[in-house]
Design a binder for these strands. Structure first.
Lengths: 143, 143
DNA sequence: CCTTAAATGCGAATCGTTTGCATTTTTGTC
DNA sequence: GACAAAAATGCAAACGATTCGCATTTAAGG
């Protein structure tokens, strides 16, 4: 994501444009998997950008509120992970052993949502799907 | 679940048969939704069964290890919830406002899992699916 | 430049969960 | 039943991800 686009984004959602926020957006945008606050914090440090953990947390909160990112459920470790809301709705598969995360091409739940809506009467807003297994490397020695 | 069956279960999985554990199994078995440790703890108290929170936590751990129960992902509150491994694989829909939980009849992901397996090369072990919306009562005033 | 509101850093607090350790209970054997 | 060994429990303290209060700094707009 280019600086110009990032500036434009902050302007359009009406939040202040700070270096920390630009850096965080770049990191999330460049990542091919959801990142935890800790991971973002460490990546920022590597890039010589000194930042406080609470600031990362507060930025996540703000970006969720503005629908720029979404918060994923913890896998099994009680740690939230975050990813950009891309145009396309995405799911991921997670390796139980090495925690490798791979994006899944398609989301097959639209039809299912309609069905559930009829069955339960709920107005459906969102869903989360996570799938677990052993990746190519780890499946040889599942231990 | 009857006492006889519970005793038999503890015997067959090789863990000690204590009143606390029997009580917890009964509560989980009777519940139509996943329960948190806190909820189990309070239900036990109501039934005049004094127990320590850590004991509930340790019982959960043991029952997961023996594949008697499964641990669900936190919804949005960072609290784990637990449910019996019934013969049938289940999912739930959660009301965003009042947290009401309703069981969904069917799990449509078997075919999808096969597809993902081919695409990614993962050996798939498990999946978790959660769906969110407003229940019949709450959808009138979403606020 | 100057003002105001928002963002940040820092440290302390929160809260669900885990752990160490002493005590109690279960289980199997005599 | 009594006994020994292993497992389970209670209790209090520790842990760790996240949140919060508050003083300071920074961005945005006139």
């Amino acid at each position: 994501m280019k600086d110009k686009d990032i500036n434009q984004m902050f302007l359009s959602i009406g939040i202040k444009n700070t270096k920390h926020r630009r850096d965080i957006i770049k990191i999330l945008d460049a990542s091919n998997k959801p990142l935890s606050v800790e991971e973002i914090y460490l990546l920022l440090k590597e890039n010589n950008s000194s930042i406080n953990l609470s600031t990362v947390y507060r930025t996540m909160e703000k970006l969720i509120e503005k629908n720029i990112i979404i918060q994923n459920n913890p896998f099994n470790d009680n740690i939230y992970r975050y990813q950009m809301c891309k145009d396309k709705h995405r799911h991921h598969i997670v390796c139980i052993k090495c925690s490798k995360i791979v994006e899944i091409e398609e989301c097959p739940f639209k039809d299912f949502e309609d069905k559930i809506k009829k069955e339960t009467g709920f107005d459906i807003e969102n869903h989360k799907f996570e799938i677990y297994g052993y990746c190519n490397n780890c499946k040889k020695n599942k231990e």
